Simulated assay, not measured.
Amino acid sequence: MTDALDIDLAPVVAQQPFPLLFATVSGAHLYGFPSRDSDVDLRGVHLLPAADLVGLREPEETRSRMWDRDGVEMDLVTHDLRKFVRLMLRRNGYVLEQLLSPLVVHTTEAHRELAALAPGVLTGHHAHHYRGFATTQWRLFEKSGELKPLLYTFRVLLTGIHLMRGGEVQAHLPTLAGEVDAAPAYLPELIAAKAEREHGEAGVDHARVRADVERLHGVLDEAQAASSLPDAPTAHDALHDFVVRTRLEG
């Protein structure tokens, strides 16, 4: 099977009906634990014509497409710029990870400008996003016993802790495992196991990982309480001006 990130994705960008401000790779490849059969999650922002937003018809603000390319399942989801920026302002760490992903398929000056504004939407309340995401993934792990939701649980908790402590969005689990002192020592072993299979039993001591997950929730709570991040976004006006200018420039 073709390595997912060796595929030329430029034709995918060229086929989109509206201009893309950016497209990046998210999902397991961004998080640092893809398996041999992981799909490629492409995320980005498109720009609707101004006329689509001022008439009576509801615009299609989110577009999605799934297909197979050279034996790899591709999943592309893009939002119109206005919707994406609104999501940024709602303590949504997921869209920030997409915006700031180092796995860039397509970029523009607008992408770089938007990324530069991202620190202005970070708040201490982003801890709630990661706490909630971790809770959802932990429930999936408890039901299935699979490795994937367990790794997601650890990933989002460590991302939240790292963000609260340093004001930086870091989604790459191997990096987090080395930088966050609270990370369990066995994470590299779990990451290596995930590389061999997309689905399957985690093969872990459930009591041990449950204790570590509960401990990390406590660390996240402490990091949020001590965080110097503001209570509200500071870049709202700058983002508004950016959306208006980018739309009018087409």
Rank of each mutant, 00 (worst) to 15 (best):
residue 50 A to L: 15
residue 58 E to W: 07
residue 68 D to E: 14
residue 34 P to C: 08
residue 28 A to G: 10
residue 16 Q to S: 06
residue 46 H to Y: 13
residue 73 E to W: 09
residue 71 G to P: 13
residue 99 L to W: 07
residue 75 D to T: 08
residue 92 N to Q: 09
residue 80 D to S: 09
residue 14 A to T: 12
residue 19 P to L: 07
residue 94 Y to C: 01
residue 84 F to D: 02
residue 102 P to N: 10
residue 85 V to G: 01
residue 75 D to E: 15
residue 63 R to S: 06
residue 3 D to E: 14
residue 58 E to N: 10
residue 69 R to Y: 05
residue 96 L to M: 13
residue 1 M to D: 12
residue 17 P to R: 11
residue 8 D to Q: 10
residue 81 L to F: 10
residue 83 K to Q: 14
residue 80 D to W: 08
residue 30 L to R: 05
residue 101 S to L: 02
residue 93 G to K: 03
residue 29 H to I: 04
residue 9 L to D: 00
residue 33 F to V: 06
residue 13 V to W: 05
residue 58 E to T: 13
residue 22 F to Y: 15
residue 15 Q to K: 12
residue 58 E to P: 08
residue 15 Q to I: 01
residue 49 P to V: 09
residue 51 A to P: 08
residue 22 F to Q: 00
residue 56 L to W: 13
residue 32 G to L: 06
residue 46 H to F: 11
residue 11 P to H: 09
residue 64 S to D: 14
residue 58 E to F: 07
residue 70 D to H: 14
residue 18 F to W: 15
residue 84 F to Y: 15
residue 104 V to F: 11
residue 27 G to A: 04
residue 39 D to H: 09
residue 37 D to G: 00
residue 75 D to W: 03
residue 14 A to H: 12
residue 102 P to T: 11
residue 103 L to I: 13
residue 91 R to I: 01
residue 64 S to N: 13
residue 22 F to G: 00
residue 31 Y to W: 15
residue 53 L to R: 15
residue 62 T to F: 01
residue 70 D to V: 02
residue 10 A to V: 11
residue 59 P to V: 06
residue 98 Q to T: 12
residue 44 G to T: 07
residue 87 L to V: 04
residue 26 S to P: 03
residue 3 D to P: 15
residue 19 P to E: 07
residue 89 L to P: 07
residue 50 A to T: 13
residue 84 F to W: 04
residue 48 L to K: 07
residue 58 E to L: 10
residue 32 G to M: 07
residue 14 A to F: 07
residue 63 R to M: 13
residue 70 D to N: 12
residue 30 L to A: 09
residue 89 L to Y: 05
residue 87 L to K: 05
residue 61 E to F: 10
residue 26 S to A: 12
residue 91 R to Q: 11
residue 61 E to P: 03
residue 1 M to H: 12
residue 31 Y to L: 03
residue 97 E to K: 08
residue 85 V to N: 03
residue 26 S to C: 02
residue 47 L to H: 05
residue 93 G to M: 06
residue 104 V to P: 11
residue 91 R to G: 00
residue 6 D to M: 05
residue 57 R to W: 14
residue 89 L to W: 02
residue 23 A to E: 06
residue 13 V to L: 02
residue 50 A to D: 10
residue 78 T to K: 02
residue 21 L to E: 06
residue 64 S to W: 05
residue 3 D to L: 07
residue 94 Y to A: 12
residue 78 T to Y: 04
residue 1 M to G: 14
residue 63 R to H: 13
residue 2 T to P: 15
residue 31 Y to T: 06
residue 32 G to K: 03
residue 92 N to I: 09
residue 84 F to V: 00
residue 26 S to T: 08
residue 22 F to V: 03
residue 29 H to A: 08
residue 42 L to D: 03
residue 8 D to E: 14
residue 4 A to C: 07
residue 103 L to N: 05
residue 41 D to Y: 04
residue 91 R to D: 15
residue 70 D to F: 05
residue 3 D to Q: 11
residue 67 W to D: 12
residue 16 Q to A: 07
residue 52 D to S: 15
residue 74 M to C: 08
residue 24 T to L: 00
residue 79 H to Y: 14
residue 100 L to E: 14
residue 76 L to N: 02
residue 84 F to N: 01
residue 27 G to K: 04
residue 68 D to G: 01
residue 40 V to F: 00
residue 80 D to H: 12
residue 55 G to S: 14
